[in-house]
Amino acid sequence: MEKTDLLFAHELFMRLSANIETVIKGQKENIRYILAGFAGGGHILLEDNPGTGKTTLAKALAKSMDARFKRIQFTPDLLPSDILGVSIFDPAKKEFKLHKGPVFTHILLADEINRASPRTQSALLEAMAEGQVSIDGNLLNLEDLFFVIATQNPIESRGTYPLPEAQMDRFAMQLELGYVTRETEALILSEQSLAHPIHSVLPCVSLEEGLKLRRLVGEVFVSKELKEYIVALVTATREKPGVLLGASPRASIALMKTAQALALFDKTDFVGPDHIQEIAVRVMAHRLILDPRLKFSGVSARTLVEEILTSIPVPV
C-alpha cells in the first residue's frame, strides 16, 4: 500500500470524525468504531436507552457523506413490502410497476428496528448479507455502497421484539453509547439552545471517497498468527460452557475487517493484536445466546467475551 493511500485514509477518517463530532459530543471512541464498521463493509447496530443520541449519531454519519440516505421508522405494523418495495398495477399502461422501497439507497437508517415484528425484520436479511433483494421473484442489486445503521432500545423496554439471531449476526458490531460526562452534557445543552446542530451538518466525504476507503481496508495486511488468534477467540465462544449459540464464521470475518479498518485509521498498513482486542467485544458479544441460567447468575455476553479475551494468550 502506498504511503499516500495511508495518509488519504487517515485524513478521511479525521475529517469524518471531526464532522460528526460537531453534532455528537463525548463519543469519540464510538465514532471511531462506527467508522471502522462502515469502512470494513459491515452494518452497525446502536443499542441504548432512549435519548442517548443514537439517532442523532446515525443521522450525523449519514449526512456527512454525500450519498443517498433513507430512513425507515420501524413500527409494529410495518410490513416487509414497506422496506423492500412493491409492484403496483398501472391501469394506464396495463402492467405492474415496481415501486422500490427505502432499501434502495446508500445509507439506510433503521430507527427503532426492534419495534417491528420479526417478520418485517427478516426482509432485511438478504439485503444486509448479500447486497441484493428479491421482489416478486426478481433479483435486484442494491448500491455498491450499502450501509445499514440501526438503532434499538434494550429488549427489556416495552413494545419491543428481540431481533432474530440471523439478523443480529448480520450486524458487524453492536455499540452502546452510554451516558456522557456531566460537563459534556452541559455543553450539549448550551449548543442546542438555538437550534439542533444536526441541521448544520454538511457532507464532507464523497461517495467515491467512501468506496475507496472500503477498498483500502481490504489491502491492510493481517499476519497468519493474528488470523489464528481471531479464529481462536471466535471458536472459544462456541466452546464456552453455557453458550447456546456461539459466534459465527461471519463474526471472524467482521472482526478481521473492522480490525483492518482500525489499523488504517491508525495510519498503519498492518493489523496489530491491539486492534483485534480493541474491537472484539463489540463484534462478538451481540451474536452470543447465553443459557438463561448463566444470565441469571450475572454473566452477560460482554463479560463472557471479556473473559475469553483474558483466557487466550495473545501473539506478541
Binding site: Q277, S311, I312, V314, V316
Partner: peptide, 20 residues
C-alpha cells in the same frame, strides 16, 4: 525488553498485548 521489565516487577500476562 519484556524480560528486563518483567524482572523489574511488571510481568506481562499472557493475554495482554505489549501496548496494553
Amino acid at each position: 525488553i519484556e524480560e528486563i521489565l518483567s524482572e523489574k516487577g511488571g510481568p506481562r500476562r499472557p493475554h495482554e498485548t505489549y501496548a496494553s
